[in-house]
Structures are given as C-alpha cells and as structure tokens.
Amino acid sequence: MLLNTVVIILMCSGLVLFLATTVGLLRFPDFYSRVHAAGKGDTLSTALLLAGLILYMLRDFNGETLLTAVKLSLIVFFVFIASPTATHAIIDAGYEARVPYWSKTGEKTDAEHSIPDESVEHRENR
C-alpha cells in the first residue's frame, strides 16, 4: 500500500514535469529557450517515471525482477548522460546555423551579435 503511494507520487511528479516541458516547448519565443525546456525537463521526468516503474517492479522481489530493475537503472543512467549530450549537439547545430535569436527588446537578431565585443575581437585574432 505504501509502495503504491510512493509509485503514484513519483510518476505523477514525472508527468507534471513532462507537462511543463511540453508547455515550454510550445510557448517559449525562440529556439534557444525551447532547448532549455527540452533539455532539462526531459531528463528528470524520464528518470522519475522510470524510478516509479522500478519500484513497482520490485514489489515481488526475486532474481529476475532484480535483473530487470538493474537494466532499467542502466536506462536511467544512459538517459542522464545522453540527454545533455544530445541537447548540446542540437543547440550547437542551431547556433552554427544562426537560428534567429529572441531578445528582451523584441527584435529578432542574429545570435552572433549578442556576444560581447571582446569575443569577436578574439575570433578575428585567430
């Protein structure tokens, strides 16, 4: 009974985080902010949902369920490493392709212009 409650709490919080991810993905103004919503919300919500499933699976404890639980934890570990890496690859590609950049003043500018001047100098020196 207690186990079921913990499972329900874990999975519901994961679902709420995924809801926030989706809402952020739909309503944030530019590509870079959407990457923020996607890269962060995705990792923890997947981990929470899978953690709930692991606990539910371990309710009848024997060798087979233990092995399955270890495999599931491997998936969680993999998501924790792979999700930031994939996010990084996506935002790097977008930055290099100069996806338009939204700033507070309301103008859509090239991402390059928003970097401080000394960095541009640094690049010209190379």
Binding site: L17, V23, G24, D30, A37, G41, A111, P116
Partner: peptide, 24 residues
C-alpha cells in the same frame, strides 16, 4: 533546475521574466 524551468514555463507571464543572452 527542473522546478525553475517548470515555473518559467507554467507561469502565465513568462515572456516578461525571460531575458535570454549568450555569455562567454
């Protein structure tokens, strides 16, 4: 981080708190 991004995404006037920038 997740609480932060969730509150940003779900708050009704998030476009006013957003102020994205690239730093180096």
């Amino acid at each position: 981080a997740n609480i932060h991004i969730a509150s940003l995404a779900l708050s009704p006037r998030s476009n006013e708190t957003l102020d994205p920038r690239i730093i180096k």
